[in-house]
């Protein structure tokens, strides 16, 4: 089963995603695909906090900030994968710290996410909903928003279930919640 979860910041998406991934995994392999590539001390602290929060929940961590499918090389595809988040993954693909910007990365990343969803037994994808504000953005930022929305729409299309999280409550847009 594949699930796409979106919603605003700090609304409980990650907590819900962890819970769903654990339910889907049962006693099988449970992977956390860590997408953040730390840029500074603040990121390191955030990562330490997330690692602490996941401790004892049975996740094996796969570090994969770019080229999502590469993490399957060392993993059991029959397992359950929590990809948190599409937002960070796309940012790493579009704006790599060690190379030129790739503003065309949206299509490639969207395809990679959909292929990933098709290759594994269970997956939960998390993406931030940042499309309902009254901002007018510069070119690259708006291009990033457009690309992120493309990834979200494609995932919403291929995933079995689509859930919007608001104030830790779920709005089911497609499919069913995992048992």
């Amino acid at each position: 089963m594949t699930i796409f979860i979106s919603g605003g910041c700090k609304n409980g998406k990650s907590t819900l995603a962890e819970e769903m991934a654990r339910r889907l995994a049962g006693s099988g392999n449970l992977y956390y695909v860590a997408t953040m590539i730390p840029q500074d001390g603040e990121d390191m602290e955030r990562i330490r906090r997330h690692v602490r929060q996941r401790a004892g929940k049975g996740f094996q961590t796969l570090e994969q900030g770019r080229r999502l499918e590469d993490c399957l090389d060392g993993a059991c595809q029959d397992g359950t994968f929590l990809v948190d988040s599409v937002t960070a993954l796309l940012a790493n693909e579009m704006f790599p710290a060690d190379g030129p910007w790739d503003l065309q990365a949206g299509e490639r990343t969207a395809q990679e996410l959909c292929r990933f969803a098709g290759r594994v037994k269970n997956a939960v994808f998390v993406g931030d909903f940042l499309f309902s504000d009254a901002g007018i953005y510069d070119g690259p930022t708006e291009e990033y928003r457009r690309a992120l929305a493309l990834c979200h729409r494609r995932l919403a299309d291929v995933c079995d279930s689509v859930v919007e999280v608001c104030a830790a409550c779920c709005i089911l847009h497609k499919g069913v919640m995992p048992e």
Partner: peptide
């Protein structure tokens, strides 16, 4: 377009835009 959910914009015209829309 739903432009109603972000931070209140600093610039007055964008504030008004958000409210009027």
């Amino acid at each position: 377009r739903d432009i109603f959910c972000g931070v209140v914009p600093v610039e007055a015209p964008l504030r008004l835009w958000r409210e009027e829309t």
